[in-house]
Amino acid sequence: MEKEKKFYERLEQKGVSRRSFMKYCTFLTASMGLSSSYVPRVTEVFAAPIQRPPVIWLNFAECTGCTEAFLRSSYPFPDDLILEILSVEYHETIMAAAGHQTEENLQEALKKYSGKFICVVEGAIATKYDGAYGKIRGRTFLEIAKDVCPKAAAVICLGTCSSYGGIQAAKPNPGGYKGVGDALGMKTVNIPGCPPNPVNLVGTVVNYLLFGRLPKIDDLGRPDFAYGKSVHDQCPRRSHFENEEFVTRFGSQEAAQGYCLYKMGCKGPETYNNCPVAKFNDGTSWPVEAGHPCLGCSEPDFWDKMTPFFEEM
């Protein structure tokens, strides 16, 4: 109780009311597909970590957009995640150490937390030519992944690149790029999207902290709570589809009226993700709301299977 009281005091000092915190936890609990009876337990995960769960974050062939997406989390805020909820042991984009000190940090964390840390991977792994197309400290991405991933309690692939290979794996896939599961032959939890919604990463991590296990996943490794339904089925423009009210030209009257983007190439019917419900950037918007067709960016091989993007499926 005392701890909880202190936690709310601290939140309030930071300008977060107990009410808005509970609202967030309720939202998160709902996005995770849990009943409202779990709300207090979700709150607890954020309130009183005895030891913050260690995270080793690996950046391979990527654009850092998934790290950026993680930093857009706005409940918990990124500073809460970094200072109070997680222990980010290794992350090249934010860590203060550089050069050989980074390797010391990585090895120290691997030794200290072997079998206990969450490994988040961002980016694909080059497999052609012994993985020679990307290196850090002279070691290939493939060598680093082989060293780190099997020692993790769980490997979470954040983004379509680490999940399924992503853009560099698009035809002709010159470097033989693959997702982590494929490159290492191991089971990973995949949170695809280009980039994914940070809500879905936080939901997955909370599930792990809450139950000591990862959320239920589909055969593509995606948590059901986020990727269980198609974008089309959750789309607020769905009724226009049913009524055959389509946009056929950008800049048209139909576009201004918010008609269905199916004929402009929208891939919502083939794409499984919670974008229309969770929306991005603290629920601000999502591509279809901005009048642009869905690209299908959380589906495997979408750069080949979903292109040309502006042609009807």
Partner: peptide
């Protein structure tokens, strides 16, 4: 005006789609 960040999704050749916004 871009649907999301990172990787905004509202520009098209000829203009921008976020007319409703």
């Amino acid at each position: 005006f871009g649907g999301k960040n990172p990787h905004l999704q509202s520009l098209v050749v000829g203009g921008i789609t976020s007319v409703r916004d």
